[in-house]
Simulated scan of single mutants.
Amino acid sequence: MAEETTLSKDHWLSIGEIARRAGVASSALRFYEDQGLITSRRTAGNQRQYLRSTLRRIAFIQAAQRVGLALSEIRAALDSLPDDRTPTRSDWSRLSKSWRSRLDERIAELERLRDDLDGCIGCGCLSLQRCNLYNKNDRLAERGPGARILNVGIPSEL
């Protein structure tokens, strides 16, 4: 980071301060750093220090995880931010707008789960192998492993 050498000590926070302010464990910060999501510098005593702007990155990471983005997607988004300056509100807004379709998909998935789950609970079998409603004669096994109905919805031929 080019700006790091010109910043006063007020721009840097210890790992404990960042953890407290962000509401995450220090171990989470070390994990984020190992994954290339945030960076730190080391003091003469080998203690981690983070730029104050790291708080925004952590908030972004947490929001992205809640949306369901994979760490690789989060890293790619963070990598698109400028290196030569602190990201602006506009930079963050651009990234969050790119999540809209992902959020819409997630909402639809959750609604499908909510609407179909009561049918399974009401029937009581809770078994896709014996379920006469959604999987008569275990027909979904032919389509591969996993929760086929949850992943793609109820096939029209069932």
Score class of each variant (00 low, 15 high):
G23E: 10
V24K: 09
S8L: 05
R21C: 06
D118Y: 10
Q35V: 02
D84I: 05
G23Y: 04
S90Q: 15
K136Y: 14
Y50A: 02
T86M: 03
L158R: 10
A77E: 03
S14R: 04
T88P: 01
P87W: 01
D116I: 04
G45N: 10
D79A: 09
C120I: 13
I58N: 05
K97N: 10
C120E: 12
C120V: 14
R57Q: 13
E142I: 03
L7S: 02
M1C: 11
L81Q: 03
T39Q: 15
I18G: 05
D83I: 08
R42V: 06
T88D: 09
V67R: 05
L133Y: 05
Y134R: 07
W92E: 00
T86S: 04
S8D: 15
L69A: 01
Q47A: 11
L55G: 10
G68L: 09
T86F: 00
E73K: 02
G153K: 03
A70T: 11
V24C: 08
D115C: 01
G144P: 12
C131M: 05
L13H: 08
L103D: 00
A44N: 11
D118G: 02
N132Y: 07
D83V: 06
R89I: 06
N135D: 08
R52K: 12
D91T: 09
W99Y: 10
K9N: 11
S98L: 09
A59T: 14
T6N: 11
D79S: 09
S40L: 00
D10R: 12
L69M: 07
E109C: 01
